[in-house]
Design a protein around this nucleic acid. Structure first.
Lengths: 115, 115
DNA sequence: CTATATACATAGTTACACACAGTATGTCAA
DNA sequence: TTGACATACTGTGTGTAACTATGTATATAG
């Protein structure tokens, strides 16, 4: 059956996106935003991410000093708002540059084998 | 000290490159090539990869049916030559397309926050 | 008052990159 | 001939991170 192929392809696609998730999150947190809304924003822009991935990721990034957060109680349920910290800004710029370099490298690797 | 920052940045860069390694390997294995030479070829093209990463990766990809290999004994020590299989060709095309899509998505995510 | 959307959290599983160490062959120069 | 270095591959252990699944709690609509 064709199942094996599509399973593998899906797994590989996931691996592809893995390293990019942090960059994607950083890119969206210039202004305050909470997890749930961030998740839907990313989804709308073609970068879906599971809850079980996003929330731990946000916590981790705060631990690493890339994000700052605070609880806010408004109309709805309590929400935790995140935004980039000073370090987060710097790392984001570094990471964005590394990303562009990587894109160039991969382009170079692939171009020879264009069918 | 600045150490913490550069450590983190290095770790993130590694994560960034992680998903791309398989794509990079696939891109180079249109023709027969053995691990050691492949490693140096990738290094020369801006995609360095550790031995402890590359060799298990090649084995794994063969298990998954993406590569075919055979031992050859010539002048030097025995070498294991790898090349893309039929499935490998197909997956490579899929993966390359997903990569291009991902590049577009990330571009879209980042462009708003250009300083 | 019950179903659904909102909002966040976490335990468990799996996969992978790397550091480190080991084995063995080939080459070259003192 | 021996010792150093490059070549070529293998294996173990460790750490990190994404996902699945599940749980908790608050709002809102019928």
């Amino acid at each position: 059956m064709q199942k094996a192929h599509s399973d593998l392809a899906a797994k590989l696609e996931q691996e592809l996106r893995r390293g990019v998730l942090m960059l994607a999150v950083l890119s969206q947190l210039k202004d305050n935003q909470y997890g749930y809304s961030l998740r839907h924003a990313l989804d709308a822009k073609g970068m879906p991410i599971e809850e079980g991935t996003l929330y731990p990721l946000l916590r981790r990034m705060e631990e690493q000093g890339l994000l700052q957060s605070e609880w806010k109680i408004e109309d709805g349920p309590p929400r935790r708002y995140y935004r980039r910290s000073k370090d987060g800004e710097r790392i984001y710029r570094d990471l964005a540059e590394q990303w562009r370099a990587l894109v160039g490298t991969v382009e170079g690797l692939m171009e020879e084998s264009t069918s």
